[in-house]
């Protein structure tokens, strides 16, 4: 053995902080969502979007969560999510080829024909649907991934947004490797 000077250090793994999208298959039981939310809040992380819905099996639900955080901490969190008794399957889909959708309802100022026509044209390009129309406003329904929703928002913002709501993201792993086509 030999002597060395200085204070040798162990390498500590640090991850990149980014948005993760996590898909969780759970027993459809009361308190499950609270358990998951408690665990995530316990890490000091904020849930950016959330969706809960049915699956093909009656007693199972799928929860899709978008949360921003350090890769290493998220990895640990996923292990802890798996440890919950009511979680059947937990996957981090961030780096996995996947199809992702969210739904937006948006009510825009449209006091005259001119605005209505223009909004309709944009909506058409984005395959949005007009779901309500009044003297001075128009409501559009739009689905897509977050890029598409963002692009649409950028275009219609100048008209003035009266109100809007988006659902949480839902996502499934893609089985084919082909590029996603815009629908």
């Amino acid at each position: 053995m030999e002597a060395v000077n200085g204070r040798p250090k162990r390498e500590i793994k640090k991850g990149e902080t980014r948005k993760h999208i996590i898909s969780i298959l759970v027993n459809n039981e009361f308190g499950v969502l609270a358990r998951i939310a408690t665990l995530i809040a316990g890490k000091g992380y904020n849930i950016e979007s959330l969706s809960v819905g049915d699956t093909s099996e009656a007693n199972l639900s799928r929860i899709t969560i978008e949360v921003k955080g350090d890769d290493v901490v998220i990895d640990q969190m996923i292990k802890q999510l798996r440890r919950l008794i009511d979680t059947i399957k937990v996957r981090d889909l961030t780096d996995v080829p996947r199809v992702e959708r969210e739904l937006m309802l948006i009510k825009l100022h449209a006091p005259s024909h001119k605005e209505r026509d223009e909004i309709l044209r944009i909506a058409q390009i984005f395959r949005g649907k007009v779901v309500d129309i009044s003297q001075d406003s128009i409501m559009i329904e739009l689905t897509g991934d977050s890029e598409k929703i963002k692009a649409f928002l950028n275009l219609v913002r100048p008209f003035g947004i009266k109100e809007m709501a988006t659902t949480g993201k839902i996502t499934l792993k893609r089985e084919s490797v082909a590029e996603e086509t815009q629908d």
Binding site: R10, E11, I12, K79, Q80, R83
Partner: peptide, 26 residues
Amino acid sequence: KVDEFAPFAKIIHIDIDPASISKNIT
């Protein structure tokens, strides 16, 4: 202090709980 814990060692970790592994130290 984690980065000065066993700084020369390789670590084998045997545990029943996957969430305990590489939690505080890789």
